[in-house]
Simulated assay, not measured.
Amino acid sequence: MSSDGAHARVHFPVDVSPVALERFCWILVGVSLVGDIVTTFVGLHMGLAESNPIARSAIEGYGLVGMIALKAFAVGIGLVCRPLLPVAYRAIVPAGLAVPWTAAVFINLYMISTVI
């Protein structure tokens, strides 16, 4: 890590451009979004309950469409906020979506494995 006085710079072992990192993070958003939706509905069909009250309300009221709309809303907020950041920091937006959704996939998989 080095600093130019105003910004800390992290040096990766390989050269990763901010654009490439952001692209990877958006791909991870897509994969984790689908994984979260699929594992959530598999768990619900196996008798598990949704622990997120907002997601639970969307699912109870509108089913799969409600869950997709909720995820689309979150991605939309991210896309609206993305241009507010400098290019070097834009990957934080998809990372902020992908990290919790990826964690949710693993939690869902664990919970499903306890029911099987």
Rank of each mutant, 00 (worst) to 15 (best):
V65K: 05
R82T: 08
A91H: 09
A6I: 12
I68F: 01
L64W: 14
R9V: 13
V65A: 14
V105Q: 02
G96P: 02
Y110A: 13
I112Q: 04
I54L: 13
D4F: 10
A55W: 00
L79W: 09
E22V: 02
F106S: 13
A20F: 10
L79Q: 07
M1C: 10
N108W: 03
C81Q: 10
P94V: 02
F41C: 05
A69R: 06
M67L: 15
L79N: 07
V16L: 15
R23G: 10
V29E: 01
L48G: 00
A74R: 00
I116W: 08
A6N: 14
C25T: 12
P86D: 11
G43R: 00
K71Q: 11
G66P: 00
A72C: 15
V75T: 06
C81F: 10
P13T: 04
T102W: 05
V87K: 13
G43V: 00
G76C: 10
I37E: 00
A20K: 13
S3M: 08
P53H: 02
F106W: 15
D15W: 12
V87E: 14
A6H: 13
V87D: 12
K71G: 01
I68D: 00
L21C: 08
A20L: 14
I59L: 03
V34Q: 11
A55N: 06
I112N: 03
T114N: 13
P13H: 06
P86T: 08
V42I: 15
P94S: 08
S57Q: 11
H45W: 09
L28V: 10
R9A: 12
N52E: 09
I27E: 08
L44A: 05
A95T: 12
V42N: 03
L28H: 07
Y62H: 15
S113P: 06
I68N: 04
G5L: 12
S57I: 00
L33G: 02
D4Y: 07
L48A: 01
H7Q: 13
G78P: 08
S113Y: 10
I27Y: 12
L21R: 03
A95H: 06
A20R: 13
A103E: 10
Y62W: 14
P83Y: 02
S3A: 09
V75L: 05
Y89F: 12
P83G: 05
H11F: 10
A55L: 05
R9S: 14
L84E: 13
L48S: 02
G96W: 04
V99D: 02
V75G: 04
P100N: 09
A58N: 01
G63R: 01
A6L: 15
V80H: 07
W101G: 00
P100C: 08
G30V: 03
C81W: 07
A69W: 03
